[in-house]
């Protein structure tokens, strides 16, 4: 006796139809997925091409070495890129140690208690606070309450606060990826906690941490709103004092107190002008800005890629 029940032709056809239908569903969705991808990519391409098309012709030595001007053809981004560079310097100098310190504490030190939970919830909420709110914070506290004015120092500080959550989160991820065996063997040779962190855990997490700091800085470099809010000027026709000087002590921190403008503000300012000639300037600034951020992200992605490959081998 056979327990096989042979399928009738109609049943076989029905199941074949079902399989066909399922295949069709999958293919349709895969196509939809690809279409969405292509749509998003082509928008991104359109953005880049439009910007480059409008602005690339304007980028030359004069554009980089001229101050802004009322005449579009003579205006340049000198003060803007110098300002951006100096502000980024301050931001990196503040955000890196503070963010790495906080990330290290949360991942390796924080005891399991309410206060640690509060810090943790707080960090993830800070990541969601709109950037312009940070601008209001800096305006109310740094600019007026502490009387610091809209200086490079304040600009760097507000951007540092803004990217702090990014640095903290990526530091924590990088530290979490450090194998626990490394910690055990470091403690095993008699290291104290800080020695374990400084000599073993942080060096192992370094590529991941650097990636996070670069990603954070690339976000900061394009931030406009908080810098506008603290009252940075849009028309700066001078440079801050040089950070280096010919006489001892050779470094000079007066530049921290200087008013400033940055690339995205310069671009915003030119977009807001009615004359199309200024829009060309804006596009040129946008190309430079885009190139900077993409270059920084490219470096970050490259480091991460190398890191992933190193982990695999």
């Amino acid at each position: 006796m056979s327990i096989d029940v042979p399928m009738g032709t109609s049943e076989r056809a029905a199941s074949a139809a079902l399989v066909r239908k399922m295949r069709r569903q999958d293919v349709i969705f895969a196509v939809v997925g690809v279409i969405v991808l292509v749509l998003v990519m082509s928008l991104l391409m359109a953005l880049v091409i439009d910007l480059v098309h409008d602005g690339i012709g304007r980028i030359n030595y004069d554009f980089l070495t001229h101050f802004p001007s009322r005449r579009a053809a003579r205006a340049g981004v000198f003060s803007a890129w110098v300002g951006t560079t100096l502000v980024m310097f301050v931001t990196a100098f503040l955000a890196a140690p503070l963010g790495i310190g906080a990330g290290l504490y949360l991942e390796e030190y924080a005891p399991k208690n309410i206060f640690s939970d509060i810090i943790e919830i707080n960090v993830s909420n800070l990541a969601g606070v709109p950037s312009i709110i940070y601008g209001l914070l800096a305006l109310g506290i740094f600019v007026y309450m502490l009387g610091m004015g809209p200086t490079i120092l304040v600009g760097g500080m507000v951007l540092a606060l803004l990217i702090l959550p990014i640095v903290i989160v990526s530091t924590r991820e990088a530290i979490r990826a450090v194998p626990s065996g490394l910690r055990e063997s470091a403690y095993g040779v008699g290291c104290n906690k800080w020695q374990v962190m400084w000599n073993y855990v942080l060096p192992s997490a370094r590529p991941g941490i650097i990636t996070g700091v670069i990603v954070g800085l690339s976000r900061a470099i394009g931030e406009t709103a908080p810098i506008i809010t603290i009252g940075a000027l849009t028309f700066i026709a001078f440079l801050p004092e040089s950070p280096v000087q010919g006489t001892p002590p050779f470094v000079n921190f007066d530049w921290l107190q200087s008013p400033f403008t940055v690339m995205p503000i310069q671009m915003f300012n030119w977009i807001s002008r009615p004359q199309p000639a200024f829009h060309v300037n804006a596009a040129a600034t946008g190309v430079l800005l885009l190139a900077m951020t993409l270059a920084m992200n490219g470096v970050a992605i490259f480091i991460r890629y190398r890191l992933r490959r190193a982990l695999k081998t």
Binding site: G181, L182, S185, A186, G188
Partner: peptide, 8 residues
């Protein structure tokens, strides 16, 4: 330890 765990 169980698994060899030299420092990098």
């Amino acid at each position: 330890f169980q698994k060899p765990n030299p420092f990098p």
